[in-house]
Amino acid sequence: MDVAIIDYYANHGKSFLHKAKAFWKIIFTALIIASIIITNEFYLLLGIYIALVTIAIWTKLPVTKILTIAAYPAIFALIFALASWNGSWLRAGVIMLKALSAALTMVILIVTTPYPDIFNVIRPIVPKIIAEGLFVTYRSVFILLELTDDLIKGLKVRGGITRRKYINNVKNFSSGIGLLLVRGFDFSEKFYGVMNVRGYGGKISSGNTQKSISRDDVIALIIGILIFVVSLGTTIEKSLLEFSFYILVFSIIALIISSIYVQFKS
């Protein structure tokens, strides 16, 4: 998990998804995840995954990096696929594609939306302690990442992590985590205190709070609805499944055209 890189992508991107509001992007994400969950058709899931890769290309961010981040659940899905192996590659493929596509959908959301914007959308539906906990956790991650960097450098320079001294390494590394916890807590307590003194009352200011729906929001919404309708349609009316191969071909063509277009434009 490259938290700092993801945060950088979310705050510095210029694509239509970056411009769309968090609320509509969460609807878009929910529609795609619902599409992934309701279908068990291999070719359709492959089509959805390729469509998501195409959307990742449209974000104009490093696609390989995004795909690598989103590939993390592959190892967990593989365990489930192996455990439910019935001699069919299609079934294993369905499990893998479901996990990978859902992860890619979430990663597309977070590389195009700053965390505070997402927290602001979910804040009204969660208790205050969770809403504040989400925000303080997010802030603390960056405090800790900085401290972790210093800690690892310090450990290496002072011989705390050396080759072939595994027990010593684990001991020093663990004490380092303890140190991170203690120092991080002090930082976090001060930070929360300062926030309260400055009038923090549980609401995080976000630059993306306009209520009206923009063109970028509509585009995101249409893509989400389109994928959901296709998935729901093939789930309700099984005879439509014969078109799933054509949907896959369409996705591949869209991917190729998008790759060429984005490459040409940049």
Binding site: M1, D2, V3, K128, I129, E132, G133, V136, T137, Y138, R139, S140, V141, I143, L144, L145, T148, I177, L180, L181, G184, F185, F187, S188, E189, F191, Y192, G193, N196
Partner: peptide, 22 residues
Amino acid sequence: ELKRKIPLIGIISALMIVCMSI
């Protein structure tokens, strides 16, 4: 008191996330 709990929740949760990323 939330003033004491929230920073602790924040730092422990963040520590778990950072450790999961190593």
